[in-house]
Design a protein around this nucleic acid. Structure first.
Length: 138
DNA sequence: GCCAACGTTGGC
DNA sequence: GCCAACGTTGGC
């Protein structure tokens, strides 16, 4: 069963456009245990919403997990992991944080409940709703 | 740039 | 094992 996730990145560090340009990249730099556990729970084929934090504050596109977790090459301690993702397609219409907050059906999203969690699960019904808001289909 | 929220660390 | 201090994230 496909699981849905939301992954955050600050666009000036690593943006949607960067991922599109690279075609594929490992999602690194996660240094939070809960986020790491979520990374470890990701399965090949899972779908991720790409969210721009700090600047933009909106969901900009869809990507897919192509390689399940392996040790983070930028980490010496051996504690942290990365996954590989590829872009699928951008949202036709970006979905902003303000919009998510203003939508009762999305009020329970982990994104809102735990703002600092950079890798968060998304429920299927939330995912469907977001796709609709983004005027995009898989 | 500020600050609130929250996760992590380390002293006891 | 508690909790204060500290660091980081991310919205505003």
């Amino acid at each position: 069963m496909t699981q849905y996730w939301l992954i955050k990145s600050e666009p000036f560090k690593f943006s949607w456009d960067d991922l599109v340009r690279l075609k594929k990249d490992h999602w690194d730099g996660i240094r939070n245990f809960q986020a790491r556990n979520n990374l470890k729970a990701m399965k090949k084929g899972d779908i991720c919403l790409f969210y721009h934090s700090n600047e933009g504050k909106e969901i900009v596109g869809l990507c897919q997990v192509v390689t399940e977790h392996y040790p983070d090459p930028t980490d010496d301690t051996g504690k942290w992991v990365v996954v590989d993702v590829v872009p699928i397609k951008p949202f036709k219409r970006f979905v902003t944080l303000a919009e998510i907050k203003a939508t009762p059906a999305l009020a329970d999203m982990a994104l809102l409940k735990q703002m600092r969690l950079s890798v968060a699960p998304v429920r299927a019904e939330e995912f469907d709703y977001l796709l609709k808001l983004g005027e995009t289909t898989l």
